[in-house]
Design a protein around this nucleic acid. Sequence first.
RNA 1: UUUUGGGGCCAGACCUUCGCUCCGAGUUCUUUGAACAAGGAGAGGAAAGUCCGGACACCAUAGGGCAGGAUUCCCCCUGAAAGAGGGGGCGGAGCGCUUCAAGGCGCUUUGACGGACAGUGUCACAGAGAAUAUACCGCCGUGCGGGCAACCGCACGGUAAGGGUGAAAAGGUGGGGUAAGAGCCCACCGCGCCGAAAGCAAUGACGGCGGCACGAAAAACCCAAUCCGGUGCAAGACUAAAUAGGGGACUCGGCGGCCCGUCGGAUAGUCCCGGGUUAGUCGCAUCCCGCUGUGUCUCACGCAAGUGGGGCAACAGGGGGACUGGUCACCUUCGGGUGGCUUGAGAGAAAUGAAGAUCACGCCGCAUCAAUAGUGCGGUGGACAGAAUCCGGCUUAACGGCCCCAAAACUAA
RNA 2: GCGAAUGUAGCACAAUGGAUAGUGUAGUAGCCUCCGAAGCUAUUGAUCCCGGUUCGACUCCGGGCAUUCGCA
Length: 123
Amino acid sequence: MNFRAGQRLRRNDDFRAVREQGRRMDCGAFLLTWRTRPADSQPSNPRVGVVASRASVGNAVHRNRAKRRLREIYRRHQTFVPPGLDLVLTARAALLRLEFADVEQRFANACRKLMPASPPTNG
RNA sequence: UUUUGGGGCCAGACCUUCGCUCCGAGUUCUUUGAACAAGGAGAGGAAAGUCCGGACACCAUAGGGCAGGAUUCCCCCUGAAAGAGGGGGCGGAGCGCUUCAAGGCGCUUUGACGGACAGUGUCACAGAGAAUAUACCGCCGUGCGGGCAACCGCACGGUAAGGGUGAAAAGGUGGGGUAAGAGCCCACCGCGCCGAAAGCAAUGACGGCGGCACGAAAAACCCAAUCCGGUGCAAGACUAAAUAGGGGACUCGGCGGCCCGUCGGAUAGUCCCGGGUUAGUCGCAUCCCGCUGUGUCUCACGCAAGUGGGGCAACAGGGGGACUGGUCACCUUCGGGUGGCUUGAGAGAAAUGAAGAUCACGCCGCAUCAAUAGUGCGGUGGACAGAAUCCGGCUUAACGGCCCCAAAACUAA
RNA sequence: GCGAAUGUAGCACAAUGGAUAGUGUAGUAGCCUCCGAAGCUAUUGAUCCCGGUUCGACUCCGGGCAUUCGCA
């Protein structure tokens, strides 16, 4: 199960679009934000961006660690995410205190709710 | 053996499965190019803070002066340089010994360690007096008055010994001297000046002279000496794409604190409004060797420009070697060795991760044992912290372990 | 990453190196009022931290911490 740079959000515009037009779900350890890409771009694999701020997580070591855990969880469960979606995972303070399996379970539950949803797009 | 202080080193090891970044033999797609991929490499002692110093890049050709900033420079050594490191000298503080005391000697520790007769300013409160010293109490003398007297009061003088105030009271201690006192005189000490053994030097054993003339603070302004052009890899270079050859205002400008000087030139420059691009590549990666060039130091020749010799190694180029990891071949006393080839973290919303197992280590509990140790079982812990242009320092953070040195205490011989 | 600036009561600001660090507002208690508001009186509360210079530090100097800002 690969997870290359092409599957990640790399532009500031992408992050801003997800944050302004997307829907949110609080999963305790992290905040899940998602948005369907516009119809003109061909439907492809979902993309994801990971955010861990210094204020909520801590110093550089903890920020890197939080992002690695979120990336690893997404890598294992990316088949649950429908195509054509952009996700943003924002780390919360509790992320590094919880067990890895616990956080993994929370992401799987969130993806199950994600399936039937049809998030609004601004045409 | 324990404790304390100082210095140095390490920052658990190994295996399995999946994954990330870079390099990539090679394979496929008949090419430009794209996809897949064996294999290899992949965080620190502080990568941190960004406090100093450089390299490198651009801005003027980086020149002179002023302004501004930094440092102290008491000396020697190391270093490319440094608010860098090491050693010494000098001073402060503490402790011990000694002295009547001042002081001296030893040990430890510490010092942003030039200058307070170049100048300006400050020293609150308290206190009589705080920098041209000062007479409140006290001490002493003379005169007058009172009292039998001891003595008391007043006035005029002398006096810095004593009290008291303060952070600090204008050399200290002892003796002589005096009406009482005072470097007024003497001895020792301190201080200043001169000479000087020794030492590369700072410094200075020791000797002589001066009777004291020199309060603190320059981390107040300042003065002296030395150094510094500015900006920082988001420096900067190149390629591609896109938009526009707009509108308005002003003027010689480049010029970065200012001036001189210098350079360029109206098809010029600055500012504002509006519009567009904000994509990619390079910069961007081990260490050593002086071969060539740059730079720098030095010696010889020369009036000079310069020429020649030698030293240093920060930068550019080229060559060679070493080390780390890997691999292949050979040898082997099975510890390893020799040779060939290859590699040297380099991201860009930013790679080194996730899960599991074993061993070693620390701590806790239980069992075994008379007790400790040891052994067994179970639990638990591993900090501080993540490269972002590179290098030399400084500072700060932190769990634990090992080694060395010094001091003290205890035990044994 | 590189480079700057600022830290004083809960909040907004003062203080030449020298009394017990002030002012407004907020808080608490009391007075006033039928009850509140306003007003009056009293009171609590602070120099970001650690060192150094000085007789004496919010102030001067050094180191740390925190916050804010700028640069393609």
